[in-house]
Design a binder for these strands. Sequence first.
RNA 1: CGGGGCGUGGCGCAGUCCGGUAGCGCACCUGCUUUGGGAGCAGGGGGUCCCCGGUUCAAAUCCGGGCGCCCCGACCA
Length: 486
Amino acid sequence: MADDKKLTSQQEDFAKWYNEVVLRAELADHSPVRGSMVIRPWGYGIWEHMQSALDAMFKETGHENAYFPLLIPMSFIEREKEHVEGFAPELAVVTQAGGKELEEPYVIRPTSETIIYAMYAKWVQSYRDLPVLMNQWANVVRWEMRTRLFLRTSEFLWQEGHTAHATAEEAEEETRLILGLYRTFMEDWIAMPPMTGLKSESEKFAGAVRSYACEALMKDNKALQAGTSHFLGQNFAKQFELTFQSEDGQEEFAWNTSWGVSTRLIGGLVMTHGDDNGLVIPPRLAPAQVVVIPILRGDDAGPVRDKADEIVSRLKENGVRVRLDARDHLSPGAKFFEWERKGVPFRLEIGPRDLAEGKVALARRLTPEGEKRKAFLPEAQALAELPERLESFQGELLQAAIARREANTVRGVKSLDEMEEAFEDGAGFVFSGWSGDPAVEEAVKERMKATIRLLPDEEFRSDQAPATCVSGAGESVTEAAWARAY
RNA sequence: CGGGGCGUGGCGCAGUCCGGUAGCGCACCUGCUUUGGGAGCAGGGGGUCCCCGGUUCAAAUCCGGGCGCCCCGACCA
């Protein structure tokens, strides 16, 4: 950031660009505690829109919100073997309270399976009590070694859904339902089109039988795990005695699922749409969809200001989220740059000239190829068209992201050499055959830092996948999508 | 935990080699003139130079010891 005004370009240093955008768009800032962050109003505003959209989707599918406590007895975490092994290194533990050493330490939740299924065990007696479909919005703490704003911080915000079912089939169905719901949300709201599929054994959630995930491709061609949905089988039910009496009188263990997305999605949004001028926020999530900037000059300042106020209230009536920037110590140009950096989809300028002509200037955060940056439109037309222009902007962001993902996906890779070449050439997702042998994953990771992101769902699979494993040893039992990942 | 870098007004940095009044740009405050792509002029406020100790007439600068942060390699939404 030698030039205070410009951001480091994505091409020059993507990681540095990301950091600067997050800080300078005022999404978040570092807190005094290492590895944790403050989410500022502009960033939290995006999160609030994500929350309300997701929350509505959860409710529509029969889920209810609840809240479980921050502190979990250490012994609960230790109950499920794989779970504790997975989380032990990143636990923050409370050993003192009220000025005394605690008899049993408490863990600050890294996730809430244990406490939640312990409670479900209390509430569920019969098949008539099932399914239990709950979600909670909460913060969790995982002590990470290396942190990055939004992508990996010691504390983050998320939602975690936890369900209990009478049959494995029903639980599996729930897992898949939520995965689809996440995908729809990411496409329709973040305009971030993920691939979906199953995680390999080595990448699945600690304590799950199977994990499904949404993986999205960022602009630097690294994959971001953006949401996960886990089929937990009866692993937790057995440890917490979550049982029910079936229709035919048998005592049975319930089947569980858990699923979550976090504030990491904001990092995904930044790296899916941002450019060298800063953030680009999809209209449906933008805290402000339009910023109105009056050009206040000389004698016309009063009438222009009045017109700007009028435009703001009329846009509000049309359901557009609008913000007025009438600060008089900044030049219009400075405001243009500022709001572009913050990713506001549209800017509406109103000056003396426009006032005289009954027009306004409308500028879009991203200008399509061959179009002028600003359109001078009759005021009534601009106001009437803004809602649909916001929607088409939203749609174009999604289409562009899908096109980018496809353009950076390499299919049909048949050998490790070919795979390495693809990654050297800057590929995003690389598809190959895989024997299912974890040793192949290890070898690839060692050699080219890529991992299996997904065993992709049918929709994303190749028309003709290689019949042999990319390692050259053995037949392929499944197609795998590899990528370097966050 | 290994390797590299850095701690100086809010932010970004110079000054450190070779000790001698703590500086620059941006931001901030006041006033006037401005305002359609990062405004101009004038005036002004703000810093225990990361901490502790040592050397010296004198330390941001030299010496010793701490602490913190950032980047790169092994875990993870």
